[in-house]
Amino acid sequence: MIKLTDLQDSRAVIDDLAQAYDFDIDRASGNYSWIRISPEHRFLVIAGESTGGAFLAYGNGDFDGMPILYVTSEGQAGKVGSNLSEFLAIVVAVPYWQDLLKFSGGGDLAEMRRAAALVHENYAEDEIVTRAKTHMMKVLAIQEISDP
Rank of each mutant, 00 (worst) to 15 (best):
E86N: 12
L140R: 00
L100E: 09
S38W: 05
I90R: 11
I142A: 01
R131G: 01
L84M: 09
W97M: 05
T72G: 14
S82G: 14
E111W: 05
F87K: 11
Q98D: 10
A116F: 04
V71K: 15
Y123P: 01
A12C: 01
K102E: 14
M112G: 08
A110V: 13
V45Y: 03
A124D: 10
D64F: 09
Y58V: 04
G52T: 03
G78F: 14
A110K: 15
S50V: 02
G61Y: 12
L101M: 11
E121Q: 13
A93S: 11
E125Y: 05
D22F: 09
L17V: 10
S33A: 12
T72K: 13
A132L: 04
V94L: 13
G52D: 00
L109Q: 13
V94P: 01
R131N: 10
E40L: 11
A28N: 07
A141M: 01
A93F: 01
Q19I: 09
P67Q: 15
I25P: 01
G75V: 12
P95I: 04
V139W: 00
D15Q: 12
G65E: 15
Q19K: 11
G75H: 11
R11L: 13
S85L: 06
E49K: 03
S38K: 14
D99E: 11
E127A: 02
D26K: 12
I46L: 08
Q19C: 08
W34Y: 10
D108I: 13
D22H: 08
V13N: 05
E127G: 00
M136P: 03
E49N: 07
Y70F: 15
I90D: 04
D99Y: 08
D99T: 07
L101W: 08
S29I: 13
L17P: 05
G75Q: 09
S33L: 06
V45R: 06
G61K: 09
S85I: 04
I142C: 00
E111T: 11
M137E: 14
L88I: 14
Y58E: 02
S85Y: 07
G105I: 03
E86Y: 07
E127V: 02
D16N: 13
K138A: 10
G48C: 02
L17T: 09
Q98C: 08
V129P: 00
W34Q: 10
